[in-house]
C-alpha cells in the first residue's frame, strides 16, 4: 500500500460533530485535546473540515434535523474512514428513549466502527476507542507487513482486547 495509507494511522485526524447531544460527550472530546489528556502528542488533531478527517467522532442521538447533515459529512469524508459513536446517546439513543425527535443512535444513519459507552463517556474511554479504531484500520489495510501488524499502534498506550 502507499506510503500515505501507512502513515495515516500514526496521525489520525478527527472530525467532531454534535448531532443533538447534551454537550457532555462534546466536552470530553474537547478535554482530550487540552493539556490534561493532550492527544495531539499521538498525532491526533481535531480538524473541522470533513475532507481532512480520517476518524469521525459523533456525539448525540442524531436528531431528525441533523440526520441529513450527518450523512453529508460522512459522504464528504474521504475513504478509508472510521466512525466512533461517543457515548450512550450516539450508541443507542438510550438516555432519550422516550423522546420523539431522534433516530436512536448513529448506526441508524451511517455505519459505525466503534461504540463508546458512558454518559458522558470518559476521555480515557475515548482514547481507547480511537486506538481500537486504528487497530481495525490496520487489520483492514492489506499493505502492512506481518511484523508491523504484530507490533500494534505506536501510541504508547495499552490496547484493551
Amino acid at each position: 500500500m502507499s506510503r500515505r495509507s501507512r502513515s495515516r494511522p500514526r496521525s489520525p485526524w478527527i472530525l467532531h460533530f454534535d448531532t443533538g447531544s447534551c454537550n457532555g460527550c462534546d466536552l470530553e472530546v474537547w478535554a482530550l485535546l487540552t493539556p490534561r489528556y493532550d492527544v495531539e502528542r499521538f498525532g491526533i488533531v481535531n480538524k473541522a473540515n470533513p475532507k481532512h478527517a480520517d476518524i469521525l467522532l459523533i456525539t448525540g442521538p442524531v436528531t431528525k434535523k441533523c440526520e441529513a447533515r450527518l450523512r453529508a459529512l460522512y459522504d464528504q469524508t474521504p475513504a478509508p474512514k472510521l466512525v466512533v459513536a461517543c457515548g450512550n446517546c450516539a450508541s443507542t439513543g438510550a438516555p432519550f428513549q422516550d423522546a420523539y425527535n431522534h433516530c436512536h443512535g448513529v448506526d441508524s444513519v451511517i455505519p459505525v466502527d466503534v461504540y463508546v459507552p458512558g454518559c458522558a463517556c470518559r476521555p480515557e474511554a475515548l482514547i481507547d476507542a480511537v486506538v481500537l479504531a486504528i487497530e481495525k484500520w490496520r487489520s483492514l489495510d492489506q499493505g502492512w507487513t506481518e511484523r508491523e501488524k504484530e507490533k500494534g499502534p505506536e501510541l504508547g498506550h495499552e490496547v484493551r482486547p
Partner: peptide, 14 residues
C-alpha cells in the same frame, strides 16, 4: 435553530 431538539419536555412527562 432546532438541530438539537430531542423532545425532552415530552419525555419528562413519563
Amino acid at each position: 435553530l432546532g438541530y438539537n431538539h430531542r423532545g425532552i419536555e415530552y419525555a419528562m412527562e413519563k
